[in-house]
Design a binder for these strands. Structure first.
Length: 118
RNA sequence: GGAGUAGGCGAGGUGGUUGCUCCUUCUUCUCUUCACGAGGAUGAAGGGGAGGAAAGUCCGAACUCCAGAGGGCAGGAUGGUCGCUAACAGCGACUCCGAGCGAUCGGAGGAAAGUGCCACAGAAAACAUACCGCCCUAUAAGAAGGCAAUUUUGCCUGUCUUGCAGGGUAAGGGUGAAAAGGUGAGGUAAGAGCUCACCGUUCUGGUGGUGACAUCAGAAGCAUGGUAAACCCCAUCCGGAGCAAGACCAAAUUGGCCCCGUUUGAGACGGCCCGUCUACAGGGGCGGGUAGGUCGCUUAUCCCUUUGAGCAAUCAAGGGGUUAGAUAAAUAACCACCCCCGCCAAUGCCUUAGCGGGAACAGAAUUCGGCUUACGACCUACUCCAGCC
RNA sequence: GGGCGAUUAACUCAGUGGUAGAGUGCUACCUUCACACGGUAGAAGUCACAGGUUCAAAUCCUGUAUCGCCCA
């Protein structure tokens, strides 16, 4: 019940993407790049970006599913409401499920800490 | 063991936790209407949820919009024959040619309508001229031989060499991818389809076949090299763009058009009022149309099966089925048990325990029919070659 | 999703069946006290890949790969 990812919680419009790319802060990891910007809504929103460099459609779909599952499971960690774009890097082809999970958790923790202090 | 062809299948099964999308039914709330009702949100239950290639976008259609009297030109596509199909560059059967020991595979109109090209080499690359060569005739010189003569010399020739002229030839000629029917015999001054036999080619006729073509007989001595995935000719077909097509609803803002603009704002006429005019504030309406949304959107030239026709592709009739509809784009993550395969451990076998694996190519985007490309873990059938018994 | 196009030397490009070229760059030598400019010479290519047509393919035909452009 608390791990739902409804359509409202996803970034869909090109205007929103451009705004977040321009104003957002960035976190770089080994496999992922996260761009985040606090919003005025009562809930957080997210989007996943996988470029064609990563592979064919099957590989890209699998990575998007992994990242969406990670976001759903760990929504509690985001205490403030944020707009979040998750971009996958080329190195993600060699990543396993567990490695990706660890990287995502550390990234989210650092983001939420910075957001609270700053 | 190797090879070939045709076909099937395409992440083993059950359960659980979290979670996505669509449909149906129900509950609660909200909006609107006189009412029937309609839309949205939340929750619950049930059900459906990627492929053989979904791919490349190479062909053909359906469907939509645009253009369009009719016809032609240009341009493009196809190309053995007959059939199947809504259509196709697809499929089936057959014909001929070629490759392979073979199962089998590949190719296919016209070069005698015309134009172009055929580098290098070669005599010549397409009116068969002509170079070398071969041969005949005439002639000049030389040699040889013979005759006459004292010698110089003169005359003669079924002889030889060289030159020149006229003619006959296409047998032979380093080449080249390709050289003007091939082989053999006769024939001739030398040669030549010049003549003959066989093979090949072309034409005519008969027979068989719907036809491509096959076969038999006769004739022509043979004239016509290759290239049409060069231009071209012949036959048949083709308007263009594509679901981001297209249709509908439609916020905000700017601009446009129409009406009102009064008993109340502004300006003009006027000394003032009434009144008239302007249409600047302001108000109302209209249409186009952006963001956004809805439809198109999944039942269609469909799938399965039985019978009949046909060698087959396929067709006809009957019965049954409904099988994704997303839009920053839906199938995932983890766990447990069973099943199968492989490895290791105590000795050959069994059993038990442990570890690893259950794939590859790859993700619907309007929908079908094909083709091509990628993958082959697996399974089935048939066939060929080689080896052993 | 749907339409188009390109690929030739390190780079930018010619080359419309018959020996793969130009400019820039690179290397060596000359010139200069030295450098630049200039001059001479040279190297560098699986014509993206694979199959076919042809005597012969960068060129013609078919397929594959990579890169790019347009359409609400």
């Amino acid at each position: 019940m608390h791990e739902i990812l409804s359509p409202q919680e996803r970034i869909k419009k090109k205007r929103d993407f451009l705004l977040i790319y321009r104003r957002g802060k960035r976190y770089r990891g080994k496999y992922l790049i996260l761009i985040y910007l606090p919003n005025d809504l009562k809930f957080s929103r997210m989007a996943v970006v996988t470029s064609k460099k990563i592979g064919n459609a099957v590989k890209r779909n699998k990575i998007k599913r992994w990242i969406r599952t990670l976001y759903r499971r760990n929504k509690k960690l985001l205490k403030n409401s944020l707009d979040l774009i998750i971009i996958s890097k080329k190195e993600i082809q060699e990543a396993s499920w567990l490695a990706l999970k660890e990287e995502y958790l550390t990234a989210i923790k650092s983001i939420s800490q910075k957001n609270q202090t700053g």
